[in-house]
Design a protein around this nucleic acid. Structure first.
Lengths: 223, 223
DNA sequence: CGAGAGGGATTTGTATACAATAACGACCGG
DNA sequence: CCGGTCGTTATTGTATACAAATCCCTCTCG
């Protein structure tokens, strides 16, 4: 999108991820317009995108709130992502160019470098990880699949807690990526799917372990 | 959404599905505002939704066009829908109330009645079919899953061609629904998943047969 | 003391005017 | 005759004013 609405989007998103607002807190379009420095029109456009990504929700009477993700919500998100991204890996295995496989290798080198910093550079890790998965989705060559996954991957909760992962967790992630590259290089869709599946499922359990297995189960409905 | 933007959405959608416009034809927000009788503001809101549903697409310079669905696009849509809706059926099998199962039975009675009209009442069939699947998705109790599926099911191409299905095709569909209800009543997630899978995959092949197996393969890129 | 109605304040929805950007075509130079 | 550049027109993007809906507090009545 164009300048103002794009800017509104990223500023609001950053604002939400920064933790400056709490789940279930009400926001108004005017507030957001002030924060972002643009008028309500592009803010409304940005808000729509953020609603789509489930970072914001609207009450039944159109009032705007910060979304609250329960543990169950997050599990479902991981499950759906796994379903779709396994499919993407399968398709990608049949379609990746040598050049793209090279990109994946390079990205995974960056990712490993980020892990081996002391302390691990989690921001770089997340960026390399995001780019890695993006190449695969791109190669799957299915616009609709990409669109669906885009929503799931925007999920913020994961990003917020990634900083608590151990170096061992991160290294396992890098090993998964290595094996994915191997599966792609071998042009073996089944292998790629299987590795992607375990990769994401493990990520879910790592997440659960880091936030506590039964947290957040008694939260009130948010709408 | 509120009155004007909701009205704009359904009018534009109807306009697109009516076939009054051709794929790759350009539209302007002003035109649509005139057609719908509201200002550009709600039209833009409606257009965003339709873009999301891939009924409309924007060029790289933000100009608006009627989307063109290739056969491959449609196959991918069916594949994704199958993946997600099988999952929904599985979850629904564990969660449907007796009341909801009763609803499914009632809807399938309506559906069969529509089929046995002479000629078959395709509009009622489609409506009962939509409602049937909606109950299942609702019962799956996963907001994100429902949201993803909503997009896929809006796909218009299927609706446009449904009128060409034979009575035999429609009857098979009703039988699938009967078996789904049986699987739900037995609380057997695996059974439900399997039936849903074959139901949707058959629907795809019925679709392919009705439009011709290799149609629409040489269309130029639209963006 | 509680329930519900009324009304001002808050918030979202819509229309409109204007600004920014992209497409189109005419004109010019080679 | 071709290619490019500039100005005009068409189209989308943004700001703002106003309308509609909703919330919340208060006040009254039972």
């Amino acid at each position: 999108m164009s300048r103002a609405s794009e800017q509104a989007y990223s500023k609001i998103r950053a604002h939400l991820l920064s933790g400056a607002v709490r789940p279930n807190e009400q926001l108004t379009e005017d507030q957001l317009a002030q924060i972002t420095g643009v008028s309500r029109t592009p803010v409304r456009e940005a808000v729509r995108r953020l609603e789509d990504e489930l970072l914001l929700v609207r009450s039944d009477t159109k009032r705007l709130f910060v979304a609250d993700w329960s543990r169950d919500d997050i599990e479902e998100m991981f499950t759906l992502r796994q379903m779709l991204e396994c499919h993407a890996a399968e398709r990608a295995a049949e379609r990746l160019t040598r050049d793209q496989i090279g990109q994946l290798e390079a990205l995974n080198r960056d990712l490993k470098a980020a892990i081996e910093m002391t302390p691990p550079d989690v921001t770089s890790f997340l960026e390399a990880n995001r780019a890695f998965h993006e190449v695969i989705i791109e190669a799957a060559d299915s616009p609709r699949l990409g669109q669906l996954l885009a929503k799931l991957i925007e999920a913020p909760v994961v990003l917020r807690t990634a900083r608590t992962y151990s170096q061992g967790d991160l290294r396992q992630s890098a090993r998964d990526h290595d094996e994915l590259v191997a599966a792609f290089a071998a042009r073996d869709p089944e292998w790629a799917r299987a590795v992607m599946g375990s990769h994401l499922r493990r990520a879910f359990h790592t997440f659960v372990r880091s936030v506590g297995p039964a947290a957040n189960d008694q939260g009130p409905a948010q709408t």
